[in-house]
Design a protein around this nucleic acid. Sequence first.
DNA 1: GCCGCGATGTATCGGACCGATACATCGCAC
DNA 2: GTGCGATGTATCGGTCCGATACATCGCGGC
Lengths: 212, 212
Amino acid sequence: MLEFAILGLLQESPMHGYELRKELTAKLGAIRAAISYGSLYPTLRRLQAAGWITEAAETPATAEEVPALTSRRGRVVYKITAEGKERFAQLIAQAGPETYDDTGFGVHFAFFARTDQATRLRILEGRRRKIEERREGLRDVLGRAAERLDAYTLELQRHGLDACEREVRWLEELIANERSGRAPTVPNTGTAGGRREDNSPPPPGETRNERP
Amino acid sequence: MLEFAILGLLQESPMHGYELRKELTAKLGAIRAAISYGSLYPTLRRLQAAGWITEAAETPATAEEVPALTSRRGRVVYKITAEGKERFAQLIAQAGPETYDDTGFGVHFAFFARTDQATRLRILEGRRRKIEERREGLRDVLGRAAERLDAYTLELQRHGLDACEREVRWLEELIANERSGRAPTVPNTGTAGGRREDNSPPPPGETRNERP
DNA sequence: GCCGCGATGTATCGGACCGATACATCGCAC
DNA sequence: GTGCGATGTATCGGTCCGATACATCGCGGC
């Protein structure tokens, strides 16, 4: 999963470890708290060994600007290779069952802008199926085994069931959206504290900015 | 986490591995899909080595009752020891920060019936704080960094934010409930009677639900 | 009669990821 | 001038997962 996320992020621009972690945290904040360096650095080394990424010397930029927040130092900047891009595309195309669990789905979803529509649809439907199964499991427990469980455990199941139902609905909307037309936005999951309801129109259904 | 869950479950009755996994899955179905044997068996061995649990010879069945699903065979039945119960109580009392992440909180919550009220409150509030922090992080990203992110990523954040807000509300209710009176669930049948203090470890006979 | 098949059951192995920890530099406020 | 928080790289031990292997049992189908 981390491998996938790193390859995805590095396609937007080269980065060093610390930066990568921050971007990862921003992009995946909804699913994972924060990526640990204990997994980040080893993974970077693995990707490098495989040839998907390379170390780029701390570039002194093209010349000026550079508030020089930081002077050059031990920073190691990573850059994706052509093989790395291929690898990323391959990981998207495969998209096995692990793509449907909480983390796997979240990470793939976060890179939907780089995923073709057919695959997006496949992933959304696979995820929906999986959540529906979980939902049925919870309903079973709440129905059949309710008397065997204490009230706290039952409350936990109820809350989980609620979350499942909600996610299925969310996925339905995304799927419908994906089928007819595009644009990921869902008509307001609506809860208090709506705050900015800004739907920036710019992002098209397909991939975002490309940078060679 | 697994250690905690196993000790908690074995206080209800001795079990063998397969059974333990099924019960674990039923009890924690809302948080984890299913516990892997690859973690279950090693953990059982670890607990045994530490003296928290012991292997009990396949009991020659206590007469009837209990579906007794299958016949006896190479099954290894585990039983909690006095030290194990102490250990469990100690794990509850400690309840550090790891108790507030998704998995940790879920597992602890599932055993709230064996947790004293003060600790329940502490855990619920710790969890709330943590979720509130995550919520603020998501709001920040949605507010400040929105233009840097593509529409799919934003949609993911929105969904995550919604889930956070929902969970905070859920926790608020539980906390309010916990403070005034008892009863884990929302609607309570106002039966008077003494506000019985929690159910401590000793009484293994109950922990059944107290009013559906 | 017997054959497969799904549930029951125990167990290991490699790998992914986390949390704690260590260490070093930079800019800034006090 | 000194401490402190952000930046930055890195490792270690430990938990847990997914795949895999194996063996038994009861059942229905042929």
